[in-house]
Each structure stands twice: as structure tokens, then as C-alpha cells.
């Protein structure tokens, strides 16, 4: 029996221009998420950056059931390093394709 973790994908739009495909930006966001979610919730959620574009929008994968905690944590994150920034969660989906279509429409 092959165990496959069930996931949810969240499309996120930052309030200011940030290139999430850069390693430093993603590491800084992960630290903030771990701080707000707590160790156990962060480990259970296991957030992973799927796609980041220089245009701004990016997609994060989390374990199914943890997407709400991710959404709440992103509401409270207002700075990455020294830069002030906000994150809007646009859509949550079980597939990446629907989020890519939505991301193109934005």
C-alpha cells in the first residue's frame, strides 16, 4: 500500500512586489509561518512553495486540513525581514491547475 499525503494548494497574492522564487524570501516567509503557527502545526501543515512568479502571485502546498491555519497565519504576517508586506489568500483548491488558471486571470 502506497501512502500518499493528501494536500491542498493555496493561491496567495502579496500586497507589494516580492519574488517568492528567491530562496531568501521563501525562507523568511517560512520562519514567520513557523512563528505564528507553532512548531507542531507547522510540521503537520508542511508548507511547500510550488510556484512563485516575479509578478507576485505564488502557490503553497499544505497538508489537507491545515489550509485554514495557513490562511490565519498569513493574516497576521505583516513583514518579511525589514520589508512591510501583507498576504491575501485568493483561492484554495485540491489541484494546481485551477489555481494556475485563476492566477492568469488576476
Amino acid at each position: 500500500m502506497i501512502f500518499r499525503r493528501k494536500s491542498r494548494y493555496v493561491l496567495i497574492e502579496p500586497s507589494r512586489q516580492i519574488d517568492m522564487s528567491q530562496k531568501e524570501s521563501w525562507s523568511a516567509l517560512r520562519e514567520e509561518l513557523a512563528k505564528f503557527m507553532g512548531e507542531k502545526s507547522y510540521i503537520d501543515a508542511n508548507p511547500f512553495l510550488i510556484e512563485g512568479s516575479s509578478a507576485g502571485n505564488f502557490i503553497i502546498r499544505v497538508s489537507r486540513g491545515s489550509e485554514r491555519q495557513l490562511i490565519l497565519a498569513l493574516s497576521f504576517i505583516k513583514c518579511i525581514g525589514p520589508a512591510e508586506i501583507g498576504f491575501y489568500t485568493i483561492k484554495t483548491s485540491g489541484t494546481i491547475r485551477s489555481l494556475r488558471v485563476k492566477g492568469k486571470k488576476l
Binding site: R16, I71, L72, S75, K78, I85, G86, Y88
Partner: peptide, 9 residues
């Protein structure tokens, strides 16, 4: 705009 929230948030 940094403090705006989506309806889900």
C-alpha cells in the same frame, strides 16, 4: 493595502 484581508482570512 498591507492590512487588507481576503474574505477567507
Amino acid at each position: 493595502q498591507d492590512y487588507l484581508l481576503s474574505s477567507a482570512q
